[in-house]
């Protein structure tokens, strides 16, 4: 039997709304994944520290504050710095279409918008995550 995928669900920045993150976290657990939830108000540094300590295969970031073009590229850059390029990086939240595509050009495998079915996120992860250890 293959091991469960390990997924970090994180909330970077200052918005205090984590209902979406929790719904996604619960749906990934229900698909057999081990989901590590960081809690609110995390800096990119704290998120990357957590991902490294927890040896995750996937990072999913939820952001509703509008600071996605600031914070999300920082997470990507820190991952590269730590040699964690193998981690599948995805995001979701209130992110305008053009900026979502821009983030996808800058290292995010997929940016999900409002209305995404949770099953689609789980499917995407199952198809794209790589188990490296």
């Amino acid at each position: 039997m293959s091991r469960p995928l390990r997924v970090l669900v994180g909330k970077p920045g200052l918005d205090g709304h984590d209902r979406g993150a929790k719904v996604v976290a619960a749906s990934l657990r229900d698909r057999g994944m081990e989901v590590i939830y960081t809690g609110l108000h995390r800096t990119p540094q704290q998120i990357v520290d957590a991902a490294e300590q927890e040896d995750v295969d996937v990072i999913g970031l939820s952001i509703l504050s509008g600071s996605h073009m600031e914070l999300l590229p920082q997470v990507r850059a820190l991952l590269a710095e730590r040699g964690l390029d193998h981690v599948l990086l995805i995001a979701g939240g209130i992110i305008p279409e053009d900026e979502a595509r821009e983030l996808e050009r800058r290292g995010y495998a997929r940016v999900f918008g409002p209305g995404t079915a949770t099953g689609d996120i789980a499917d995407f992860i199952e198809h794209n995550a790589r188990r490296t250890s």
Binding site: P4, A25, A26, L28, R29, D30, R31, G32, M33, E34, V35, I36, Y37, T38, G39, A50
Partner: peptide
Amino acid sequence: SGGALLGDR
């Protein structure tokens, strides 16, 4: 499901 929600952090 075999999954888990790990919230200690």
